[in-house]
Nucleic acid binder design. Structure first.
Lengths: 336, 336
DNA sequence: CGTATTTTGGAAAACGTTTTCCAAAATTTC
DNA sequence: GAAATTTTGGAAAACGTTTTCCAAAATACG
């Protein structure tokens, strides 16, 4: 590592004081246009770039934003989280911040990451964190933070959420309008609030069309159990003609189960997913699903966080990211 | 943001000098075990954590490692890159470093990212960078760096590479051993060295089995053109009974083309991929492919980089990550 | 031309660490 | 018990910035 050129060097070269260089380079008033130009040109010529550590020490701002995922979610390989990260990244890059990525385990005893305790970041975005103790530590420490799609409710925390209920309402409504009266529902864990919301949307759509809700048509459990959940639905004496999956991943597991049972999509059974991950349109047949604007969630979160960082008394405001039904080929439509 | 507790506060509380606190906390000699313990317990009690900026300023080490991808590769949504990133992340976390993520455009005029010029990172890992000017700037600046799977050859740079040639050799050899004499090859851009290597492996396997190489069986071009490439192969008067795809993504596009042509895998035509991304085993039928140990590439790169950072005169050493053929269900086997 | 005002640039301190050097205290040696 | 040696802890400087405060220089005013 070559020894870098410092503000002191520039001052010497320009025959001025350090403070003058600083003023010139940071557009501070108090020096003439002439000297400012002079200094700027010398700094450029010598490739001067102010040192981040020096700046951070003085300014108390690092220009870094931390992005925290749960390790257990395998956020990097999970296409849903990846897209959120893309949104976060682009917004951070746009604002000339740095993105510090951190995966944390989800134990109750998890302590605040080093990067925060050491004041390496000005604020953090948390995705999928469901650890109450962790959040409380953060609040105590006074670190600005924002939650994306929190798995547990932290009602008094700044957060960005998905319009889950509306999404499954749209999906279920769409199926019913296309002649499906018996609609199954598969998905994850009822203890997860966002999943509970999705189930709710399904129920509301049934109610809206005066179709009685039947517990037997709903299969919950592990996030990845779509295969067995679907098998159970197919075994029912009066099996559903359509399935709403709370996650595209579940829907794709359903695809396999349906395929293995010798049935065809959508001729024998229709499927609608939720999330619109990349695989949805790659699947055969392409999956009709509820699109979640994942990139938007990420970028909105960063924008919110930036105001949190730079404002003294933050106003709590919870953006709800809308959803949209994307019609593809996995639903059999009624003729009329 | 609450004002944090500094080393000065601890010194005051413990009735010692700052320097003594520093020695105690950093296991430096020159103080008695008694005072060391005393100071440590006080520091603990007051949740003292040394400030990163202060440390960096003094030490000239940030404990940050930069990870640089090309924006055009969409590395976050690309499962291949994601897995590399997972490997990088786990190795970085293991060493208590921070990961600073940075996507750069791939123009020739791209300048060194701010995080490097400002000395925010101790070194960087570059993935898929094919920009000569960029690499040269880096060398000039003296930043420690390592390349992963470089798209162009930078022979004198530290790098981690895939055993591409061996991979396609194994794939092609496997097909031939299973009775396939007419084997097609699809993939990306010949200007990309790693792709050229993959093509080479295919040729070598043919030669090994005394099968003449035919240019007509090889379809190159865009990374994502697997669909049309496969269509072309299927249209040949004597169409191949098997296809080697240089990337799993290409293979999955081939799946669609084959499906759309009304043929079945592997009964009518066999397919082998390369990379072993997640979708490979999820595909129907599960894709036989060449596994690349992507996580290992990432972690090896970080390990190499760490020695580059902490050594004065680095020894250039190029780890070649091995590959392995993973048999699944997309190849029709000969009876014998 | 002398005074009042404004503009300009510099000296010094501060941010939170670590490290070097030195003096005082404690211990050993005779 | 004094001298020589070792151990212990403190004062100060340094890392690269920014900011505050002040004095000198330039300009305006009468």
């Amino acid at each position: 590592m070559k020894s870098p050129v410092t503000i002191k060097d520039i001052a010497k070269l320009a025959n001025v004081a350090q403070s003058t260089v600083s003023k010139a380079l940071n557009n501070r008033p108090g020096i003439s246009a002439r000297t400012r130009q002079h200094i700027i040109s010398i700094a450029k010529a010598h490739n001067f770039v102010p040192d981040a550590a020096g700046k951070a020490l003085k300014n108390r701002f690092t220009n870094n934003i931390g992005v925290v995922f749960c390790r257990e979610d395998y956020p990097l390989r999970n296409p849903f989280f990846s897209r959120i990260l893309e949104g976060i990244e682009s917004e951070i890059a746009f604002n000339h911040y740095n993105l510090v990525l951190q995966l944390i385990p989800n134990h109750e005893e998890t302590t605040i990451p080093k990067m925060i305790r050491e004041r390496q970041v000005d604020g953090i975005v948390l995705i999928g964190v469901r650890n109450k103790a962790f959040i409380e530590q953060l609040q105590q420490a006074g670190t600005p933070f924002i939650l994306i799609d929190p798995r547990d409710y932290f009602p008094d925390c700044p957060q960005v959420v998905i319009d889950n209920e509306n999404g499954t309402f749209l999906a279920t409504d769409y199926l019913i309008r296309n002649g499906h009266r018996k609609v199954g529902f598969i998905g994850g864990d009822l203890a997860v609030p966002s999943f509970a919301e999705r189930l709710n949307g399904y129920k509301k759509a049934l109610a809206f069309h005066n179709i009685p809700y039947s517990r037997r048509l709903v299969k919950t459990g592990g996030f990845e159990e779509g295969y067995t959940q679907t098998q159970q639905l197919l075994k029912l004496s009066k099996r559903p003609s359509a399935i709403v999956a709370a996650y595209d991943i579940s829907a794709l597991h359903a695809y396999r189960a349906i395929n293995d049972a010798g049935m065809r999509i959508p001729e024998d059974i229709s499927v609608v997913g939720f999330d619109d991950i990349d695989l949805a349109k790659m699947a055969i047949p392409a999956l009709t699903t509820v699109r979640v604007y994942k990139e938007q969630m990420g970028s909105v979160a960063v924008r919110q966080l930036r105001t949190l960082i730079h404002t003294e008394t933050p106003v709590s405001f919870t953006p709800i990211i809308p959803v949209k039904l994307v019609e593809r080929d996995s639903v059999k439509k009624s003729e009329d």
